[in-house]
Each structure stands twice: as C-alpha cells, then as structure tokens.
Amino acid sequence: MVETFACSFRATELDARRGIVSVVERLKEMGIPNTRVDEVQIALAEAVNNVVEHAYAETTTGDVLIRCNLFPDRLWVEIRDAGAPFPDAKLPEGKAVDVDTPLENLPEGGFGWLLIRELANDVQYQRNLDNNQLSLCFEIQLTS
C-alpha cells in the first residue's frame, strides 16, 4: 500500500520554511523514525531552497509543489516547480567541500547538493514541458 499526500506553497523563503515544517510533521505522523525524518528535512530544504534561489531567480515567483509517496520500505519525495530548468538539464554533482584551505577561502555556500546526495538513496530529475520534477528517494524502516 502507498500512502500519499501533497502540498504546495509560494516559492519564498518564509513560505518555504512553513511548507517544509508541515511536510516534516506529516512524515512523523506516518511513523517514519525521527532520525530519518531529520535527514529528509535536510535534503528537502536544500531542494526547495534551490527552487526559491535559482529556478525562479529570473522569473516571477511561482509555486512549489511537494508530493510524498510512502511505500513499505521507501519514501519518494517529489518537488515540482514551474521555474527555469537546471543548466544543461543536468543536476549538480555536489562535490565535497575543500576544507583544507586558508580561512578566507572557505566556501560560504554550495553545500546543498552535497547534502542531498549524501542523504537521499536515489535522485531523479526530469524536465517536463513547463516544470521541473525532482524526485528524492529515502529508504525507510517503519516503526509503526
């Protein structure tokens, strides 16, 4: 059996925060262990931040649609937006940050894809006619 829910919100930083928190509450109610929900929250927040900061950077801000499909052993989180596609229709690699560097050269960003790739078990992207569809898969061991 698959449990599903969806929600949508405007692609602004404050609406994104509220949207992410509401998704997290629903995932906890579904019985996903808190430590795994924490990891989903970290990855989901990065994916949504990217939509707010990049996909809608050059256009009028639109909506972010999130759909969660919980299978017995995995959770798929789908994030859709009507903004610009990823450059070259390819997902960023999420390279590790070089920390062996002088203080002034330390990066102040660019950690997002690293976190997504470390926490999600699978990442898929497809560019549809007028929207981006990013899907993150998380393996789950249900407690209830």
Binding site: Q41, E46, N49, L103, E108, F111
Partner: peptide
Amino acid sequence: FIDSSGLGAIVAAMK
C-alpha cells in the same frame, strides 16, 4: 535545524 545557507552564514561570521 540548519541548512546550507545557515552553515554558510556561520562560516561568514568566522571570517
């Protein structure tokens, strides 16, 4: 909770 932006802000604060 902290995200990539927050982490970057802490690095910036150290710099």
